[in-house]
Design a protein around this nucleic acid. Structure first.
Lengths: 229, 229
DNA sequence: TGTACATCAGTGAACGCGCGTTCACTGATGTAC
DNA sequence: TGTACATCAGTGAACGCGCGTTCACTGATGTAC
């Protein structure tokens, strides 16, 4: 690796770091190449040696954020038989990352950036955190622990087909109803975090971590996860 | 009402309508007074006769959107004993409004607009849709129909206090656990809509209305709502 | 009913600012012989 | 090891555009007598 390559890698990282600061200050729509360049003491046109356009920089930030969240989830994940514990850990890890990186969380799970269309490159990184959930669910199903609740609503044929496809893709061993329960638990998990970070729980609940933990537990019960024996 | 007052009311409405178009095209951060004025064939400074600043226009849009959603929820609400039906109707009404007004939904429930701080005037309109849910829950509790699921997780004292306060404010007759279940159902409902509108279910589920209905039903079961006798 | 005055809507120019992107260029770093 | 050439990072000026907000103004609408 030549000095030039090293310098290039370092500056690319610095540009992204400065862009993340921008994101926090002015949101995704206000991300400005000139401001990034200014923060680094460069001339604005120099950024174009590293990113061909503003949107490409934004894409890089999105990919990095998904990768950071995915890496955090993977790092905290275990493979044991304590599926409830794995669910709780995953949920808490996601929330902690979100609370620590609210603007990146908003970039991923908030309103889409108007005029920006995410390229396909963002899909694999986006899948990482979901895969951790899916692995837990598959293991739980294999251990016979994703018990159906008393009265599961019937499914439309379309939804049944969708859930079957999802099961084949990344949740092996789950039946349609169990996949649907996973989807609901998943949207419930992110819904709670979004409500917290986007200000809809202000003046409603004081200790957000407590509510989140409570919600996680109830969502786990809904999933059919019971404490390990 | 003088002709001047009528003209003023009409133009105020036209400005807000044009601003809503702007919102759809460029997002909240890209809302531009000059573009609004251009669309109406006015000079940009004329807008200042109607709104003292860009942020005030944004506030008006937020209030209008909360009011529109609240009015839709109230209009579809009933008062009968079919609490499950009321929950389903409320959920579907919210989702329908969101799907028909995705940019206004994003304004309310998506990422906060950077640099914009919502004034207190937005709180009462924001409460309207929640009040519909709360009324249903209160009625269901009074009818003894918000049954606790088998094993409710224990609550921290802080969360218990929060839920007690919420019960006093707008969910009379609910115990702490029931309020918590309402919160979870509520975040689950909005979480599902946000996941759909913000693109996290693309290539995952094809018929979003089906999934939403299914989720609504399972959330109702989690709430303890059973079909009416 | 008519007149004098006050109110207010909308104009047009200006201030001072920011943006993304292009382009010809200088000078340093790397490569091939 | 030294030289000639190619690659590439960063510069600085420019293009063409947009923005929010202020201000002195014209002319129409409303009000009081």
């Amino acid at each position: 690796m030549t000095a030039r390559q090293r310098a290039r890698a370092e500056l690319t990282a610095e540009i992204k770091a400065a862009a993340r600061d921008q994101l926090a200050a002015h949101g995704a729509a206000g991300l400005s190449l000139r401001a990034v360049a200014r923060e680094l003491g460069m001339v604005s046109s120099a950024i174009y040696r590293y990113f061909p356009s503003r949107d490409d920089l934004l894409t890089a930030l999105i990919i990095d954020a998904y990768d950071a969240l995915g890496a955090a989830a993977e790092a905290s994940a275990s493979t044991g038989d304590d599926h409830l514990g794995r669910w709780m850990t995953l949920g808490r890890t996601i929330r902690t990352w979100a609370v620590e990186h609210p603007h990146e969380y908003a970039l991923l799970y908030g309103s889409p950036v108007p005029g920006y269309r995410a390229p396909q490159d963002t899909v694999p990184p986006a899948t990482r955190v979901t895969a951790v959930m899916a692995a837990m669910a598959s293991d739980a199903a294999a251990a016979g622990r994703l018990a159906a609740p008393a009265a599961a609503p019937t499914m439309t044929p379309g939804l049944a087909a969708d859930t079957r496809r999802i099961a084949e893709l990344l949740m092996h061993g789950l039946d349609e109803a169990a996949v649907a329960r996973c989807l609901i638990a998943w949207t419930g998990l992110f819904g709670t975090i979004s409500f917290e970070l986007f200000g809809h729980l202000t003046n409603v609940v004081t200790d957000h971590a407590d509510l989140f933990d409570h919600a996680l537990r109830e969502l786990a019960a809904h999933l059919g996860l019971r404490p390990a024996t």
